[in-house]
């Protein structure tokens, strides 16, 4: 009789190849999409090929990407923030109105706006926790509240639909230098939000992939009850994620304020969907627990390229939204396909 010694390894599961591992990353779909969009506009829009326009494209992308990074982390944590678009405007208006009304140093307004933005985020997270309602509903409420406050307070304080210019106030020049300056890199003009965007992407990706907070975020979105049961502070994690959205809204709000010297009270409505779409193109699942910060950044880049590409190609910009819709569905399908392929390998 022969005895078979048990082999410790299970030979049915082959080690995955390097390509399968790379193809299994959530941002792959977005990268493929970005290359496709770039190739398309390089072919049809001559101005797209000029090196000088890289700065313009990156700047357009950064005004989406700054928010998309925070929104992607929030979505990986299993929640939405529909107030993210108007929150940017709220932050800008808060700084502008406070500083102008009391003729304060603009930095006082800036700090006030930061506290307010973080507070709105914390409030969203807290309301979600105490009511147990879906974030879709809670932040839809915040969205309307903020939208109304933006319009009404601007009419009360500034008597119109835009905040008053802060040009003459103390600290204006230093604030403009911090939030809305630019510098030349060869023939490319780099506006400072591009730096913010890049920094946020790096920090976000490191937090997600290299720190224990990343595990908390993934698990809070993947199965919050199971995460809580093993000791993850799920409520705190989600509140922090909402505050992250608030922080990014503050950065972008300050940029908008000091770039244009005033803020339109009706601005920002609808942008929340652009942030969410960027995150989804970048591989975030709507159900939470899966996604990528780098992917969301690439998603924002696709937006920036498309926005300017359509303009450079001389097409009617009305087509932009249509293009977005097609992009969204295509990217989601590619993500799904790539994920299945990688899992099957």
């Amino acid at each position: 009789m022969t005895t078979v010694t048990a082999t410790p390894t299970d030979d049915r599961v082959a080690t995955r190849s390097a390509t399968a591992t790379i193809m299994g990353r959530p941002e792959v779909g977005a990268l493929i999409g970005a290359v496709a969009v770039a190739v398309l506009f390089l072919l049809v829009a001559p101005a797209f090929r000029s090196v000088g326009n890289i700065g313009t494209i990156l700047y357009g992308s950064s005004t989406i990407g700054i928010m998309a990074v925070a929104v992607a982390l929030l979505m990986i944590g299993g929640e939405f923030d529909l107030s993210a678009g108007v929150a940017v405007t709220t932050s800008g208006l808060a700084a502008a109105h406070l500083a102008w009304f009391f003729s304060l140093n603009v930095w006082v307004g800036i700090v006030f706006a930061l506290v307010l933005s973080l507070g709105v985020g914390a409030f969203n997270g807290w309301l979600l926790h105490v009511t147990g309602l879906p974030s879709f509903l809670v932040t839809l409420g915040t969205f309307f509240v903020l939208q109304g406050v933006n319009l009404a307070l601007t009419r009360v304080v500034a008597g119109g639909v835009s905040s008053n210019s802060l040009n003459d106030l103390d600290g204006f020049d230093s604030a403009k230098a911090v939030f809305a300056s630019s510098f030349q890199l060869g023939s490319v003009e780099i506006k400072v939000p591009i730096i913010f965007w890049a920094a946020l992407t790096v920090i976000g990706a490191i937090v997600l992939l290299r720190t224990h907070y990343g595990s908390w975020i993934f698990s809070a979105g993947g199965d919050s009850a199971a995460a809580r049961a093993v000791g993850v502070p799920v409520t705190g994690t989600k509140i922090a994620l909402f505050m992250g959205v608030g922080f990014c809204a503050w950065i972008l709000g300050m940029h908008n304020l000091f770039n244009y010297n005033n803020v339109q009270s009706g601005a920002g409505v609808g942008n929340e969907f652009i942030y969410i779409i960027s995150a989804v193109i970048g591989g975030c699942l709507l159900t939470g627990g899966y996604g990528s910060v780098v992917g969301a950044t690439v998603g924002s880049l696709i937006f920036g390229m498309t926005q300017l590409g359509i303009f450079y190609a001389g097409w009617d910009p009305d087509w932009f939204k249509t293009f977005l819709g097609v992009m969204l569905i295509a990217a989601t399908l590619v993500n799904l396909y790539v994920k299945r392929k990688a899992d099957a390998r």
């Binding site: 224990h212 199971a226 000791g231 993850v232 627990g289």
Partner: peptide, 25 residues
């Protein structure tokens, strides 16, 4: 109450008990 389905095996194993080197995993 199971594990987080889309998270990797090692992350699930150490969830809420992560081993750190400085601030990083």
């Amino acid at each position: 109450l199971a594990l987080a389905p889309l998270m990797s095996v090692w992350r699930n194993f150490f969830l809420a008990n992560e081993i750190r080197k400085g601030p990083f995993l």
